[in-house]
Amino acid sequence: MKPSAATLGMGVSMTVGYGTLYYSFSILAPEIAREFGWSQSFVFAVFSIGLLGGAVSAPIIGRLIDRFGARPVLTFGSILAAAALAGLSMVQNGWQFAAVTLAAEFVSIAVQYDAGFAALAQRHGQEARSQITLVTLVAGFASTVFWPLIQWLLTMMTWREVYLVLAGLNLVLALPVHALWPSYRQPPVRPATNAAGAGRPPVVSRRPQLALMAISLSAGGFVLSAMGASLLVLLGDAGFTPAIATLAGSMIGPSQVAARIIEYARRGVLSPPVTGLIATGAIFLALALLFAAAIFPAVAIVLLFAVFFGIGQGLTSIIRGVLPLHYFGTAGYGRTMGTLSGIRMVLSAAAPFTIIFVNEKLGISAAVGCLLLMGAVGLAAMIALSRLAPLLSQETSTN
C-alpha cells in the first residue's frame, strides 16, 4: 500500500503530540524548577503522576473513538492539548502546576499513538499495518526535532513563552490534520466461531490473547520508560564515561529508525506475532548485554546493547498497534487499545522511580537485573501469545 498524504499528515501530528506533550518536559522541567525554587525531583514526580492521568483516560478515549469515530476525538484532543499547554505557561504555584500537568497528560492520549492507530484502523481496516508503521517512522523523529527546537527557543524566550509556541503548533500543524481526517468508519469484523465455541461471549473468548498481550506490552513499557529516564545514570554507575554513555544513547535512535524502515519495506513477509517476538527478543538480548556490561564494562558490549535496544524499541511501537488488529480485528479496536494502554501506562509511570530506587539501594546489577526480569516476562508472554490463533476467520485475518 502506497503512503497517502493523510497518513503522512498523521505522522506529523503524532510528532507534534509527542514533541509538545512528552519530550518537551525533560527540557523545560529544569527551567520551571529554577524559577519556582523547586527541586527537580518534585517536578518530575508531578510528571510521573500526570502519566497516570493518561492511564485513566486511555480506556475512556478508546471507547469514544469506537462510538464517534477518530476524527472528532483527535480534533478536540488537539484543541484541549493546546489549551493545557497554554495553561502551563500561566501556572503560579505548585498546585496549579500539578493540576495543569495532570490535565495535559490526561488529554495527551487523544493526540498520540493510541488515537492515531485507531484512526488508521478505522480507515484501512486489516490493511492498516503499513500505515501504522509509516506513522511510527515519521513520529520517531519527535525527540530529534523537538529537543533542539525547544533548546533553541529557550535562547530567545522564557519557558512560559515556549509553552505558548508549543500550544500554537498543536493548533497550526496537528489540528488541521485531525479536522480533515476522513470520517469513514469500517464496519466491525465478527470474530470467527466454531462448534466448540459457538455462542461464547467475545469478551470471554478473547481473554487469553488480551491478557498475554497486556502482560507483554506492559512489561515492555516498563523497560522502555525506565531506560528513557535513567539510561545515562545506569551507564554512569556501571563505570562508563559520559562520552561513552552519550554515544550509546545516540545509537538507539538510528537503530530504531532502521528497524522501522525494514519493517515498512518487508511488512508482508513476517506476521505481527513474529514481529512481536523479534521486538521482545531484541529488548531481552539488549538487557542481557547491559547486565553483562554492568559486570564487565566493555565499550563494545554497551554499544551492541544500544543497537539491539533501538531495534526492540522501534518495533515495539508498531506491535502496539498491529497486534490488537491481528488478533481481534477492527471491532472495538479503540476500546482494546485503551485497555492495553491504561495497563501499560501504570507500569510505565512507576518504572523510572522504581529503577532509580533499586539502583540507589541495591546497586547497578540489581537495577539492571530487575529490567532483565521484566524483559524476560515480556518475551515469555509474547511467545505464549504467538501460539494462539487470531479471533478472526481465515478470510479476514491479517498476515
Rank of each mutant, 00 (worst) to 15 (best):
A6S: 13
G9W: 10
G9H: 08
M10C: 05
V12E: 02
M14W: 01
Y18R: 05
G19I: 01
L21E: 01
S24F: 03
A29L: 00
E31I: 06
F36R: 02
W38F: 07
Q40A: 13
L51S: 07
L52P: 10
G53H: 12
I61R: 02
I61H: 01
I61W: 05
L64F: 04
I65W: 04
P72W: 07
P72D: 06
P72G: 07
L74P: 01
I79T: 00
A82H: 01
A82S: 14
L85S: 05
G87P: 05
L88N: 01
M90V: 01
Q92T: 12
N93H: 04
G94Y: 03
G94P: 00
W95G: 07
F97C: 01
A99P: 05
A99M: 10
T101G: 03
L102E: 04
L102Q: 04
F106C: 02
I109T: 01
L120R: 04
A121Y: 06
R123L: 09
G125N: 03
E127Y: 02
A128Q: 08
T133G: 15
V135S: 04
T136H: 06
T136L: 08
L137N: 04
V138L: 12
G140Y: 13
G140V: 12
V145G: 05
W147R: 06
L149D: 07
I150P: 07
I150T: 11
R160W: 10
R160P: 08
H178P: 07
L180G: 05
Q186M: 11
N194W: 10
A198L: 14
R200Q: 14
P202F: 12
V203A: 15
V203N: 10
S205G: 15
S205L: 15
R206V: 09
Q209L: 11
L210P: 07
A211K: 08
L212C: 02
M213F: 15
L224T: 12
L224R: 09
A226H: 09
S230D: 06
L231V: 12
V233P: 00
L234C: 07
L235N: 06
A245R: 11
L247W: 14
M251Q: 11
A258G: 03
R266N: 02
R266L: 09
G268S: 10
V274D: 00
I278V: 14
A279S: 14
A279K: 03
T280M: 11
A286F: 12
L289G: 11
L290V: 15
I295G: 15
P297S: 05
F309D: 03
L315F: 09
L315N: 07
L315W: 09
S317D: 09
I319R: 06
I319A: 06
R320D: 04
L323G: 05
G338E: 09
A351D: 10
F353V: 12
I355S: 02
F357Y: 13
I364H: 06
L372H: 02
M374N: 01
M374A: 06
V377S: 04
L379F: 15
A380V: 01
A381F: 14
A381E: 13
M382V: 04
E395K: 13
E395S: 13
S397D: 05
